[in-house]
């Protein structure tokens, strides 16, 4: 008896599976993938968009920038995502991958900026660091007396007498993270140049001075996983430690932690927006133009995303930690969205 029911259940499951196998076609819900940095903003917009009532709330997956691009460029058709978020600009290789799979027209929409902060507990001192100092504290190899050596610094005041006599202890993202990529590029690379160490790397046979971006692995830099909340908690518990994470986490926890000044500039909204604060990056959303008209609501969703009440200075995305574009740039972006002007691959 039980076996018969089992067979029936199995049959039903098989039928179910095959019935849906061919049914991936029509989709009435926008599907978004991409960067975990853009994720909080896209989800907030998706929710507000869904509440407007005309369309279903889009589904937003957090896949990371690279993973998102791979899915996005997987082809045209409703089994591929419509939009992808990116915490950096699309690469030439990704545009080529897209083109190869038939995704010819991609619309690039810049949604705002994200600052990366170097923060510690409120109980610790406010530091004013240069990129070169941060580089010296975190690089795997530094230049001492003209020679390239493994990073010898264990205390901040060994780097510069003006810095406190505390142990160098920095919690930051792992190499898989987009925040780490941006940090490497914006702080480590320029810090290396400022510290005038590039030549030393080149002299050691490292043509492109890639060693500049290599972070030390002797325990002073602690990879704290992708969970920025955890880093904040650890900073509160240990007043000598520093953390590297997105501006939104600093803003949310401003009563417990403080951001170090970098090159004399405080990590504040206005400074990031105006570009004065040197460690910030642009965030993008890419739209697959071929899906407009196939999946309902894409144009409307992007209009909502780029509207003043979302990505504007007082918009709800600013509440979530997004740093708004200057008005002139924002209006240009709105025109792009209205016309859905695709990227020109030749510009890369």
């Amino acid at each position: 008896m039980a076996l018969k029911t089992s067979f029936a259940a199995l049959g039903a499951a098989a039928v179910l599976a095959t019935a849906f196998a061919g049914q991936a076609a029509a989709r009435d819900q926008i599907h978004i993938v991409g960067s975990s940095t853009v994720f909080p903003f896209t989800t907030a917009t998706a929710e507000a968009f869904g509440k407007l009532g005309s369309f279903k709330t889009p589904v937003v997956e957090s896949t990371g920038t690279g993973g998102g691009m791979k899915l996005f460029c997987g082809g045209v058709g409703t089994d591929t995502p419509d939009l992808t978020g990116a915490s950096r600009r699309i690469k030439k290789s990704e545009i080529e991958l897209c083109a190869k799979n038939g995704v010819a027209e991609i619309v690039e929409v810049k949604i705002g900026f994200d600052g990366i902060v170097f923060a510690n507990s409120k109980e610790g001192p406010v530091l004013d660091l240069t990129k070169a100092q941060i580089w010296k504290a975190l690089s795997a190899q530094v230049v001492v007396d003209g020679a390239l050596v493994d990073n010898p610094y264990t205390m901040w005041n060994e780097i510069d007498g003006g810095l406190p006599a505390t142990k160098i202890e920095v919690l930051g993202p792992p190499p898989t993270s987009g925040t780490r990529d941006a940090f490497s590029e914006l702080v480590m690379e320029t810090g290396c140049e400022e510290a005038e160490a590039v030549e030393a790397f080149k002299a050691a046979g490292d043509e492109k001075a890639k060693g500049c971006m290599k972070i030390r692995e002797d325990g002073a830099y602690i990879e704290a996983g992708e969970n920025d909340n955890l880093i904040v908690q650890k900073l509160v518990a240990n007043k000598d430690a520093f953390g590297i994470f997105g501006y939104s986490f600093l803003e949310e926890n401003a009563d417990k932690i403080q951001g170090a000044k970098i090159e004399g500039v405080e990590p504040e909204y206005d400074n990031i927006s105006s570009g004065k604060y040197g460690v910030s990056r642009s965030l993008f959303v890419y739209v697959k133009k071929a899906h407009i008209g196939t999946v309902p609501g894409i144009q409307e969703f992007m209009t909502e995303y780029t509207s003043g009440k979302a990505m504007g200075e007082d918009g709800y995305l600013a509440d979530k930690g997004l740093i708004a574009l200057p008005e002139s740039e924002a209006s240009k972006i709105r025109t792009t969205v209205a016309n859905m002007t695709p990227l020109d691959p030749a510009a890369f």
């Binding site: 599976a17 849906f20 049914q23 991936a24 989709r27 599907h31 589904v59 997956e61 089994d79």
Partner: peptide, 12 residues
């Protein structure tokens, strides 16, 4: 997903 073409994010 890739071979049978089932929908993404589905409980099935």
């Amino acid at each position: 997903l890739n071979f049978f073409g089932m929908p993404r994010s589905a409980p099935l």
